[in-house]
Design a binder for these strands. Structure first.
Lengths: 129, 129
DNA sequence: CCAACTGTATTATAACAATAATACACTTTC
DNA sequence: GAAAGTGTATTATTGTTATAATACAGTTGG
């Protein structure tokens, strides 16, 4: 049913974009599947402690993206055909890794040091997700 | 003199925060050193194509952070004592890598696949920075 | 000295993000 | 059928981001 369990709001990025990103990542990871129901606007807004309009803005964007479908009166459903998911996965990974590599390089880190850091932090955060 | 050469504006994050982040990373990387002069508010705003007030907001934040000093009439200078730089380096790396690892894990990627991707993209972006 | 440049401050405006309070029509469920 | 829950829409308000146009006092360099 997609309960937004691991959702961690971070400041800097607008909340509605964080909601969009959460669903996109879930679909790419497979934890959110085609046909799954999303929580209603009101339910999720209460759960996250934000305004219903903020959730609506996120769902609106997801619908324009083709990732969810909404019919008035019923809950919104995830629409995730394989080709869309594949394209989304490539897009997200490319974006994130590119930005990350650029930032680490700008911080003066060598590749080997970066890989080692990630290797260690990966284990460290293993349970906290 | 710190010319903001590799500055790449990204949408999502406010510009003034991107300017702050750029200086912070430069100091951590050593490409911006103690005593270096920053471009004036007006010069940098023209160079980046943004409003002088936006640059001022960034410089203000950097000054409150203790990373630059400003005296009215003269150019602002970088103030980067070793202990401040070390603390900043730890803070930035911890923040970025933690967020990155969480996002990749949320996207369903395994550690080995992630490390391999980064290893490959690192070489690929080697010249573009 | 003095012109040019510098930091700083002020006021106004526009766009966006987020909240708040409704209202209406549709679907689900008992 | 009716109540509860749902998507959708509207209007208003607040705060932040960014721009624009100034103004003033201090520093620098010829």
């Amino acid at each position: 049913m997609c309960g937004f369990e691991g959702f961690v709001p971070v400041d800097g990025l607008p909340i509605y974009l964080q909601i969009v990103r959460y669903v996109e990542r879930g679909v790419v990871a497979g934890s959110i599947a085609h046909g799954d129901e999303l929580p209603s606007r009101r339910t999720l807004s209460a759960q996250l402690g934000v305004n219903p309009n903020t959730v609506q803005k996120a769902y609106r964007m997801l619908e324009e993206e083709g990732l969810i479908t909404s019919r008035s009166g019923a809950k919104s459903e995830v629409c995730a055909p394989p080709d869309l998911v594949a394209a989304l996965r490539s897009k997200l990974l490319e974006q994130e890794i590119t930005a990350f590599v650029r930032s680490l390089r700008q911080s003066g880190l060598e590749k080997e040091a970066a890989l080692e850091l990630i290797d260690r932090l990966w284990e460290q955060k293993e349970e906290s997700v």
